[in-house]
């Protein structure tokens, strides 16, 4: 890959903000427009930008494929875990308010929703990244 200082520098500057924005979107999923899906995609786009600017090998060095697998599973486990936790506390699946936290029911609901959104965001981010890396790595590998 050809070195391009401008692109690399701009990316280096942009990526933290993109990631921050992604986190913002994820965490505000319960109370405003946004959520895990959108945030996850934005987060993944940061990685994709990184790949475009620095090349796939660099990304793979920093974020191994197995980490991606682990992250995507982790996200799902958070989601399903909270769902099942609710069941264990006697409510329905994802019946958040049943979880006995020392805060009000509405706040519990919001809090748990955040966790679920984080889980979703993790999974979406990991899956999007892995799809992109899958496509580009193999193409690069053979060419």
């Amino acid at each position: 890959m050809r070195e391009d200082v401008v692109i690399r520098t701009v990316c280096r500057a942009m990526i933290p903000f993109i990631q921050l924005f992604a986190l913002y979107v994820i965490l505000h999923g319960s109370s405003s427009a946004g959520g895990g899906f959108q945030g996850g995609v934005i987060f993944a786009s940061a990685f994709i930008l990184y790949v475009i600017a620095f090349g796939i090998m660099e990304v793979r060095r920093r974020m191994h494929e197995k980490v991606v697998v682990a992250l995507s599973s982790l996200g799902l486990y958070i989601y399903a875990g909270i769902g099942i936790l609710c069941i264990l506390f006697g409510a329905g699946f994802l019946g958040y308010s049943a979880i006995p936290l020392p805060v009000s029911a509405a706040e519990t609901r919001g809090l748990m929703m955040e966790f679920v959104e984080i889980g979703i965001g993790l999974t979406v981010m990991a899956v999007m990244t892995s799809i992109f890396m899958d496509i580009s790595v193999k193409e690069g590998g053979e060419d």
């Binding site: 697998v69 995507s72 399903a80 699946f93």
Partner: peptide, 16 residues
Amino acid sequence: VLVVIIPLIGAYTSLV
């Protein structure tokens, strides 16, 4: 809901 959740968890468990 469990019949739906079980394979969903399983999918990622088998991935891990």
